[in-house]
Amino acid sequence: MSDQAYNFAYLDEDTKRMIRRAILKGIAVPGYQVPFASREMPMPYGWGTGGVQVTAAVMTPEDVLKVIDQGADDTTNAVSIRKFFQRTAGVATTERTSEATMIQTRHRIPETPLTSDQILVYQVPIPEPMRFLEPRETETRRIHALADYGLMQVRLYEDIARHGEIATSYAYPVEVAGRYVMDPSPIPKFDNPKLDDCPAIQLFGAGREQRIYALPPYTHVRSLDFEDHPFRATKADHACAICGSASSYLDEVITDDAGGRMFVCSDTDYCAQNAKGGA
């Protein structure tokens, strides 16, 4: 089944070891961005190379892998990454969140609650939460070292002053275990509460930016906010047109030339199970 020309899960064992060390360091220091010697992968930077390297480094032959992009198993890049691991590792794959031992994701956390037997691997484009306030890595590393996050608080405050609320709808910054401010990757802020106190191991891989970070199980993750402007997870004010769920995150789909729309679950597995009545 697997491609014999390459090592199990593509990466050579030395590289996996190097990545595992970075992951362990990340788990030991939750929310801290660990530099690692990211490899050039056979898919482009920005298309999940960080997530793929992390997944490859922790994968075992017994794992059951689920890959999602935008919550769906059948989006093109999720298909491509799943195929990559089928080919190079020959592991079993699934679309069921509850059956997976490893889930690699881009932009969503599954609706089905994760368990302590699972690892969730995020693909991260820009790991640095302060990047668009301060483009220099030398400076942002200093900011993290000193927990000098005033710049971020000011930005959030300015949003409120200008728009009446914090105008960040995805990649909403969080504080991890009372210490590091972390970018949760571009998940919608609707998903932020799922980061907190999660029984699963959450690993974040940014290939191009050469950073790995992690949330050990049951880590306290707080979305940044103010006492008088508490964080709120938001979603479209509709129910899913397919399964009827009123609590899952929805995609808006344009259905005709006249601008007709419908709202459907972004998490395709959750939607299918819910429609069957078995979620």
Binding site: P44, G46, T76, R108, Y170, T234, A236, Y249
Partner: peptide, 27 residues
């Protein structure tokens, strides 16, 4: 690195765009 990251914006961003849509509508 540059071409990968530039071209990744071709990938689906439905979820983030949806979050932005809701925000802009609310604002």
């Amino acid at each position: 690195q540059a071409t990968g990251f530039l071209e990744h914006i071709k990938l689906p961003h439905y979820v983030d765009f949806q979050a932005e849509l809701e925000l802009v509508r609310r604002l």
